[in-house]
Design a protein around this nucleic acid. Structure first.
Length: 772
DNA sequence: ACTCAGTCGTCAT
DNA sequence: ACGACTGAGT
C-alpha cells in the first residue's frame, strides 16, 4: 500500500519520460511486481496447481524490453516479512484462500470469467515462483538479488550504493525510504514517469522546499503507512501542515492530544518511532560485502538489538543463499530447482510434482561447484557488464544443460546440511514467523530431506517445486503488483494529454502559487528561509536566465552559467537525467568518492558547480537549524548513493555520447525552475535581506559540506519559498520556453510545437517521434 | 479544504 | 487487486 495519495500529491513533478532515455543505466526493479503481473495471466492455472510458468515469460518479456532500450534491469525480490507486517500478511493470506476457494467453485460452476476475476485476487507470488524467474535471469545475465526482508529497502540501498541508478516501481514507499530516482507507471512500451527527489522543491501542492528526508518521512508516517496506521482524519495534507508547524512528531502528537480532535493512542509515539526506524534501518543485503547490513547505519547510540521490528539479523551464509535465490527467505528451506526452466518446463512440471526431487536434477552441491567458479558477485561487477544483452531472450537456450548458474555462493550449507532441524524451525506460519526471527544456524536450515513443496507457502500458486522439507507453509504477501501501469501508455496521443495536464497545471498554477505562499508565510518557515536564501542564490545558476523578462525580474548571479556546468560534466553523457543528478545531487550521497568528486567539481567549474556545493551547504544548514540532530544525522551519514550516478555518468558519456544527442545541461524542467527560483533573491516582502546573505553563503559551503553530516537525500534546497513558488508557477509556461536552448536541442523537435511548449510538452513530442 | 468510501478501468486469459 | 477518480461527508 505505500502511502496513499502520495503520488498524486507529487503530481506536479511527474516527468513523463521513456525507458529509452535511460540507456546505459541500471534500474532496480521489484521482481514480485513483475511476477504478480505475469501471474495474473495464468491465475486459473496457478489456482489449480497446474505447472505453468507463464509468469516467468511475462517477466522475461519485460527484461527483454529493458535490454532492448539499453537499460540494465536489476531485479530485487522480497524476502521475509517484517514482524510488523506479519499480521497484515496473515490476513491477506486468508483472503487469498477465500478468493481461491470461491474462484474454483465458480470455475466448477461454469463461470470462467467470474472465476478468473476472483482467482486474480488469490494470486500469491511465492519464493518458488521467484526462483523460476531467477533461473531465467541467470541465463540472461541479469543481475538480481533476493532481499532479506523488503525489496523496497533493498532497492533504495542499491541505489544509494550505486549498484543501480534508479528504481522502477509503483510503490510510493520508496520515496519514504529515500529513493532518489523513481520511475513509475511503466508501460509495455517503456513509457513511464520519473519522480526525482531533487524535484521535490518544485511540488506545487505543498511546499517541500527545505524539507529533509526526516520531515518528509514523518509526514508520510502520520498519514498512514505500511508500518503504522494513520491517525484519525489525518491525510497527507494535514500531516504536512502539522509537521510544518510543529516540526517534531512529539510536538505534533502533543498538539493533537491537546486539542481533543483526533485521539491518539497512548502507544502512538512509540509506534511512530518504530515505523520510522523501520524505514531507516531495515536490513538489506549488500552485494559487495556479501552480507546483511542496515539500510542506514544508526548512530552509535542506537542499539540495534532494541529494534526487533527491523527484522532479525540473518547469518551471513544464510543471507547469501537467500540473496542468490537458493533458499526460501521465509521458510528458509532450500529451494530445489528441477531442471531446465526452459519452455519445456511444463511437461516436467507436471510430472515431477510428486517425484523425488533428486531425479530432476543434479544434487545441489553440483550446482554450487559450477557456479562458484564462474560467477562474479554482482557487487563487483560493473553495471555495464550487464548491458549486453543476453541475446537469447528465448532464454531457454540450453535446456539440455540446465545447470543453473547461481551467484556466488558459498556452498557451505550444502555440505553442512545436517538434518534439518526442521521441526522446530519450520512451524512458522504467518504468525510464527515472528518467532523465527532469531537467526538460526545455517545448518539447521538446510534440511536434507526433500519434500516437495506443493505449494505450501503460497499454495495458491505454484508450480511445483521441490524444496527441502518444508513443513509449514507460510504465505507471502502479494507483493505489490504494481509495476506497469498503463496510464500513459497509449502511445503518443494519450501521453500528450497527460503532459498537457502537467503543463497546464503549471501555467494555471498561479492561483496555486498564491496558496503556496500563504502556506509558507504562515509558518516559522520564514526564518528558515532567510537563512537559506543565501545558499540558494549561490546554488543555482544553472538555468541560464534566458528570458529577458526574467532577468529583469530576478537577478541571476550567473546567468549563463548553468549550462556550462553541464559542459563540465560532460555534455554528451549527461543527456539523460544523469546529468541532472550530477549537478544537483552532489550532496552526500556518495560516500567515499563523492567528496572528492565534489571538491573537484567545485574547483573546476566554479559557480556552475556551485549548484552542487550549495546544496551541501544548504543541507548542512538545514540540519543545524532544524535540529533534531539525531535523526538527521543519521540520514546524512549513510546516504551514499548519488555518487554513483555521477561516476557512471561520466564514463557513459564517454562511451556513448552520441546516443543521447544532446541534451546539454539537462536538468529536468522542474529542476531548472526550482533552481532558478532558488537563486533569485526575492525582493518581495520577506527577503530583502536575502540578497546579501547569498553572497556570504557561497563560500561557506565547501568546507562545511564535507564535514557535515549532510542529509543526502534531500537535496532540495531550502529556500525562500515565495520566490520559488512564483518561479515555479509563473514561469512554467514561459520558463520552459526559456529553457529552450537546452531543451530544444535535447529534445526532439525544437522547431515544432516544441518551441512554444513547455519542457514537458517537448518530452511528449519526443516520445511520439520515437515511438512512431 | 480535506478525508474517506465507493466506483471505475486496468490487467490477462 | 491496484490506483485513479468521484462524490459525500466533516
Amino acid at each position: 500500500m505505500g502511502i496513499s495519495g502520495l503520488l498524486p500529491l507529487l503530481k506536479s513533478i511527474h516527468r513523463p519520460t521513456e525507458l529509452k532515455k535511460y540507456a546505459g543505466e541500471t534500474f532496480g526493479i521489484d521482481g514480485y511486481g513483475w511476477l504478480h503481473r505475469g501471474a495474473v495471466a495464468c491465475a486459473i492455472e496457478l489456482a489449480q496447481g497446474k505447472p505453468t510458468r507463464k509468469y516467468v515469460d511475462f517477466a522475461m518479456h519485460r527484461v527483454r524490453m529493458f535490454k532492448y532500450f539499453g537499460v540494465t534491469p536489476y531485479l530485487v525480490f522480497d524476502g521475509d516479512f517484517l514482524p510488523s507486517k506479519a499480521k497484515t500478511e496473515a490476513s491477506r493470506a486468508k483472503r487469498r484462500e477465500e478468493s481461491k476457494r470461491l474462484g474454483l467453485e465458480l470455475l466448477r460452476a461454469g463461470k470462467p470469467s467470474q472465476a478468473y476475476s476472483e482467482l486474480q485476487k488469490a494470486i500469491d507470488v511465492t519464493p518458488e515462483m521467484a526462483r523460476h524467474l531467477i533461473e531465467e535471469l541467470k541465463k540472461a545475465d541479469v543481475p538480481y538479488v533476493v532481499a532479506p526482508y523488503e525489496a523496497d529497502a533493498q532497492l533504495v540501498y542499491l541505489e544509494r550504493q550505486g549498484f543501480i541508478n534508479g528504481i522502477v516501481s509503483e510503490d510510493s514507499d520508496l520515496l519514504v525510504f529515500g529513493a532518489k530516482r523513481l520511475l513509475t507507471k511503466m508501460d509495455q512500451h517503456g513509457q513511464c514517469v520519473e519522480i526525482n527527489r531533487r524535484d521535490f522543491c518544485a511540488v506545487r501542492e505543498i511546499s517541500l522546499t527545505g524539507w529533509t528526508d526526516n520531515e518528509f518521512r514523518h509526514m508520510a508516517i502520520f498519514s498512514g503507512c505500511d508500518y503504522l496506521e494513520g491517525v484519525n482524519n489525518i491525510g497527507l495534507k494535514t500531516a504536512y501542515r502539522l509537521i510544518r508547524k510543529h516540526k517534531t512528531p512529539e510536538r505534533v502528537v502533543r498538539m493533537l492530544r491537546f486539542d481533543g480532535k483526533h485521539q491518539v493512542p497512548e502507544t502512538y509515539l512509540d509506534e511512530f518511532r518504530q515505523a520510522e526506524l523501520t524505514f531507516l534501518h531495515q536490513r538489506v543485503f549488500c552485494p559487495k560485502q556479501r552480507d546483511i547490513v542496515l539500510l542506514t547505519e544508526p548512530e552509535p547510540s542506537v542499539n540495534v538489538d532494541d529494534m526487533p521490528f527491523i527484522g532479525a539479523p540473518v547469518e551471513t551464509e544464510l543471507a547469501r543463499a537467500i540473496a542468490a535465490g537458493d533458499v526460501n527467505p521465509i521458510t528458509r528451506e532450500r529451494i530445489l530447482v528441477p531442471r531446465s526452466p526452459g519452455k519445456r518446463r511444463i511437461s516436467q512440471a507436471l510430472a515431477p510434482a510428486t517425484g523425488p526431487p533428486r531425479s530432476l536434477g543434479k544434487p545441489i552441491s553440483e550446482y554450487f561447484k559450477d557456479r562458484s567458479a564462474r560467477r562474479i558477485p554482482l557487487g563487483e561487477m560493473d553495471a555495464n557488464c550487464f548491458a549486453v544483452d543476453s541475446d537469447q531472450n528465448g532464454s531457454a537456450t540450453s535446456e539440455d544443460a540446465p545447470r543453473p548458474i547461481v551467484f556466488p555462493l558459498p556452498r557451505p550449507y550444502v555440505e553442512g546440511a545436517e538434518e534439518a532441524s526442521a521441526s522446530p524451525a519450520r512451524p512458522y506460519t504467518s504468525n510464527a514467523r515472528v518467532l523465527r526471527r532469531k537467526t538460526e544456524p545455517v545448518s539447521k536450515l538446510l534440511g536434507l530431506d526433500f519434500v516437495e513443496s506443493p505449494g505450501h507457502r503460497r499454495r495458491t500458486a505454484g508450480p511445483v517445486i521441490q524444496v527441502y522439507q518444508d513443513p509449514t507453509s507460510s504465505s507471502r504477501p502479494p507483493k505489490k503488483a504494481r509495476l506497469c501501469e498503463e496510464s500513459a501508455v497509449e502511445g503518443v496521443t494519450s501521453a500528450t494529454p497527460e503532459k498537457s495536464k502537467f503543463f497546464s497545471s503549471g501555467k494555471q498554477k498561479r492561483p496555486a502559487k498564491k496558496k503556496a505562499d500563504q502556506l509558507l508565510m504562515s509558518d516559522d518557515s520564514i526564518e528558515d528561509v532567510f537563512r537559506s536564501l543565501p545558499d540558494l542564490a549561490s546554488c543555482r545558476p544553472e538555468k541560464p536566465s534566458k528570458r529577458t523578462d526574467e532577468i529583469t525580474i530576478f537577478q541571476d548571479l550567473s546567468p549563463e552559467k548553468p549550462r556550462r556546468r553541464s559542459v563540465v560534466v560532460n555534455p554528451a553523457t549527461e543527456s539523460r537525467s544523469d546529468r541532472d543528478e550530477d549537478v544537483v545531487e552532489v550532496p552526500a550521497s556518495s560516500p567515499s568518492t563523492n567528496q572528492h568528486g565534489l571538491n573537484e567539481q567545485r574547483t573546476s567549474s566554479d559557480r556552475s558547480p556551485t549548484s552542487v556545493t550549495p546544496l551541501g551547504e544548504l543541507l548542512k544548514t538545514f540540519s543545524y537549524e532544524t535540529a533534531r540532530p539525531r535523526t538527521r544525522i543519521v540520514h546524512g551519514l549513510p546516504t551514499p548513493a548519488s555518487s554513483v550516478a555521477q561516476q557512471t555518468a561520466t564514463p557513459k558519456s564517454v562511451v556513448k555520447p552520441a546516443n543521447n544527442t544532446a541534451q546539454p545541461a539537462m536538468l529536468t524542467p522542474l529542476q531548472r525552475i526550482g533552481a532558478r527560483a532558488l537563486r533569485r533573491p526575492k525582493p518581495k516582502s520577506t527577503t530583502t535581506s536575502s540578497m546579501p546573505t547569498m553572497a556570504l553563503t557561497r563560500n561557506k559551503p565547501q568546507r562545511t559540506f564535507e564535514s557535515l553530516p549532510v542529509n543526502p537525500a534531500f537535496v532540495p534546497l531550502p529556500r525562500v519559498d515565495i520566490d520559488e513558488v512564483e518561479a515555479l508557477n509563473r514561469p512554467l509556461g514561459s520558463e520552459d520556453q526559456l529553457v529552450p536552448e537546452s531543451d530544444g536541442e535535447n529534445e526532439v523537435l525544437p522547431g515544432d510545437g516544441g518551441a512554444a511548449v513547455y519542457s514537458g510538452g517537448r518530452r511528449l513530442d519526443l516520445a511520439q517521434v520515437l515511438y512512431s
